[in-house]
Design a protein around this nucleic acid. Sequence first.
DNA 1: ACGCCCGCCTGTAAGC
DNA 2: TGCTTACAGGCGGGCG
Length: 283
Amino acid sequence: MPELPEVETLRRQLEKEVIKKTVADLEAKSSRVLKRLHPQSLSKELLKKTIEQVTRKGKYIIIGFNNSLCLAIHLGMSGQILFTPKKSTRGKNNPPEEKIPHLYLTMRFTDGSALRYVDPRTFGQILLLKDLAELQELTELGFDPLEAAIPWVEFASYLVNQKSSLKAILTNQSFIAGIGNIYADEILFAAGLRPDRDPKSLSTQEIRRLYRSIGEVLTEAVKHRGSTLADKSYVDIYGNYGEYQQYHNVYAREAMSCKRCRGTVQKIKYQGRSTYFCPLCQR
DNA sequence: ACGCCCGCCTGTAAGC
DNA sequence: TGCTTACAGGCGGGCG
């Protein structure tokens, strides 16, 4: 589910819904999602605290409280952050809490609304940080391409010193934070470059095109509130699907015709992951 | 030394 | 139909 556009969509929605809200009650289920964090200490630390800001770094959502503590959430492959407004009617989309499968955290606010974290595959992480700087140390994240893009010359000089392929570089979180398998493929299509291309062989023009494509694809994807794939596992905080999948040029379009050249989109297994590209448009 | 592949989980879908 | 296998957008650890 969760690459930068999806996480940024959640961040914007959370900013609208939970800023200035005060925690009335917090319930957490002990699991590897919480790592070594104890449910009781988590609830003790955050009880009666007020949310001041919701930020994002790469694929992490960071909820900042008025005691300077931050709850950092990484959604892994299947994590969902869901918001329930104060007067929630119990219906099909709002089952009683005990019926929600894979629920690991419920944060209720004083106004009766609530935030939940749900994660079937439990690859996600919930971390309690003393402050924002701690996340950086913890994860060695690279630059965020939407919040803090680096100058393109710096981008270029990094690229030409790399030994791995373009796709590996794009998905390396310690260089660029936030790009995963879907958006790497879409960015490479937009740039007209093959996923297995050796960065040392890139012309200046190609580097510029790649740099531009990163910003354009991610911005466009945020505009359409991220991608929900066939498995429907990505939903926003209201349970709605994203719409950027309609605009995918290659991802999950195996054997379909290329939207640019009418060639055929290929699916290969590359570095252990599904990779989609157009062999005619991308070189 | 570093790029890369496995395994961690559950759910779903395709394949036989 | 039903069992088995493969695969899924995450990442860290360990291996070659």
